[in-house]
Design a binder for these strands. Structure first.
Length: 271
DNA sequence: AAAAGCCCCTGGATGC
DNA sequence: TGCATCCAGGGGCTTT
């Protein structure tokens, strides 16, 4: 579910509220992708300093160590002082003086991992190979074009891989390529400099607009205060196979790339 | 080093 | 109504 916009919207919806809270207790449900990495008792008494984001990870800074939270495919967070009793898919609670932060994740591809610091081995394994942040100043055309030219995979799969640019998942990869007029199957090393510049701008644009709309709610995503996103209503190609292109009117096509579906307009994205 | 496949898991939609 | 099959916002790991 969650790509950069959904993760950022989630962060914005509880970061200010939880900052300064003190952890009273923590609870684990069924196993997530990785073990927590510390005893739940170890979290009690910690202060929550801030919530940051790196790619699709949320980093919850504590006065001692930090929690890395990933929402996987089906995860979502809630932060409230009035949560019901934990349900079957509620796999982590962080009970604090300001409310409880709860991870709900039916498929359990998500994770909550404790690390002593960002330099710790587990944190490095998860964060160490991540690419540029698309909404920050370090995302520039030169670095993007240079990195992309080294790859022979399709440009769409390079966007998804996350080692060049982070946060772009299956929805926004298709959307950004449409906005840039680039065929998803184009070999990344054949992307010209002007088209790389256009793609950079498209990635920034679509992610920023999606954050502004509260992300995309396809099935059940909601932010930590329970609000749905609305960007899916503005999708140009994602999930629109057979429907008319919003620009040229021709039918949107769907293909498979690396066992993920890709959507594009054969007319507006000729090469 | 880079690319391709496999796999983790549950639930909803679709088809017979 | 019941059951099988396919598909889904991700990404680490293993094998080429």
């Amino acid at each position: 579910m969650p790509e950069l916009p959904e993760v950022e919207v989630t962060r914005l919806s509880f970061a200010d509220e939880i900052a300064g809270a003190k952890v009273l207790s923590a609870r684990l449900g069924k196993a997530l992708r990785w073990p927590l990495g510390c005893a739940v008792e170890h979290l009690a008494g910690r202060a929550v300093l801030a919530v940051r984001r790196r790619g699709k990870y949320l980093l919850i800074d504590l006065d001692q160590g930090l929690l890395l939270v990933h929402l996987g495919m089906s995860g979502s967070l809630r932060f409230s002082s009035h949560l019901p009793q934990a349900g079957v898919h509620d796999h982590f609670d962080l009970v604090t003086t300001r409310g409880t932060l709860r991870l709900n994740d039916p498929r359990r591809f998500g994770a909550v991992v404790y690390a002593d610091s960002e330099a710790a081995p587990i944190a490095q394994k998860l964060l160490g190979k991540l690419g540029m942040e698309p909404l920050s100043a370090d995302f520039d055309v030169d670095r993007f074009h240079t990195a992309v030219k080294r790859r022979k995979m399709s440009i769409k799969q390079v966007l998804l891989a996350g080692d060049v640019v982070v946060g772009v998942g299956n929805i926004y990869a298709s959307e950004a390529l449409f906005l840039a007029g680039i065929r998803p199957t184009l070999s990344a090393d054949r992307l010209s400099r002007p088209r790389a510049a256009k793609l950079c701008a498209a990635i920034r644009d679509v992610l920023a607009r999606a954050v502004a709309k509260g992300g995309s709610t396809l099935r059940d995503f909601s932010s930590a205060n329970g609000e749905s996103g609305y960007f899916q209503l503005e999708a140009m190609v994602y999930g629109r196979e057979g429907q008319p292109c919003r620009v040229c009117g021709g039918p949107i096509k769907s293909i498979r790339q690396g066992q993920r579906s890709t959507f594009f307009c054969p007319t507006c994205q000729k090469a």
